[in-house]
Design a protein around this nucleic acid. Structure first.
Lengths: 125, 125
DNA sequence: CTAAACGTTGCCATTAATGTGAAGGTCAAG
DNA sequence: CTTGACCTTCACATTAATGGCAACGTTTAG
């Protein structure tokens, strides 16, 4: 499919689809006329990219983890696209785990706060 | 304490301490000479800010949750600094929860991938 | 008193992610 | 063949977080 179609199906601006290619996290083919050509899997890939960006990852991090996230969907790890960098992957993993920890701790604090507030002042009106 | 001291104790550049003030997440007093003056609690606050920034939150989000995170440390919620915006707080909370979900899902996928890879190719060498 | 060290404000630079528009090529419909 | 919709690249603009410098005031040590 062409870029406009992918944009429509994912809700992501064509500008960004080109940007994701530029930073190496999306790899369309090219039609003979020079148009970008995307396969069906590109849809999921773009949605995955958006999800990760919205969760606060950078395109650099995404470039490292994305190949493995897609491979993880297959039954067996036949080939290792990130074979080059299992170590970088482990680092990304621990970075993500740190983030989760921080977010969980703070989520809990906010919840405690809200709960206390709801108990103390149900006279919110 | 003065800005340089706080910078030394937190490892955060003075430039950033001024920036955090500019965006409203740090509120030093002023000494008669115009110097910023920070109390002891500023140390924790700055570290907290760094933690949240590194976890991918923006200063906008931090501005909303920080008062409550500090209040949550007290025994009781005497006064509500964010009384104005319990609703914004709930939104931040659900945003954070979404992030945690995304990160957990992807952390799990990466772990699966790494585990599979380690089982398949212990001949890493 | 003077120099060094530190503070102030202000402004300009950078990187990442994103928006926007110009100038021109391609293609399908009339 | 022309028009309109879509594509291409190029380039400049913006926002957030950060770095750096300049010009100038303050404080401290010699």
């Amino acid at each position: 499919m062409k870029i406009g179609e992918l944009a429509a199906k994912t809700g992501v601006a064509t500008r960004l689809l080109r940007y994701y290619e530029e930073v190496g996290i999306l790899h369309p083919f090219r039609s003979p006329n020079g148009y970008r050509a995307y396969g069906e899997p590109a849809i999921d890939r773009v949605l995955q990219i958006r999800e990760l960006l919205e969760a606060g990852l950078t395109t650099d991090m995404i470039r490292e983890v994305l190949p493995c996230l897609e491979a993880a969907k297959e039954e067996a790890v036949t080939d290792c696209p990130a074979a080059a960098d299992l170590d970088g992957l482990r680092q990304q993993l621990s970075g993500i785990e740190r983030r989760i920890d921080v977010l969980q701790r703070n989520r809990d604090a906010i919840k405690r706060y809200l709960r206390a507030w709801e108990e103390a002042g149900p006279t919110v009106d």
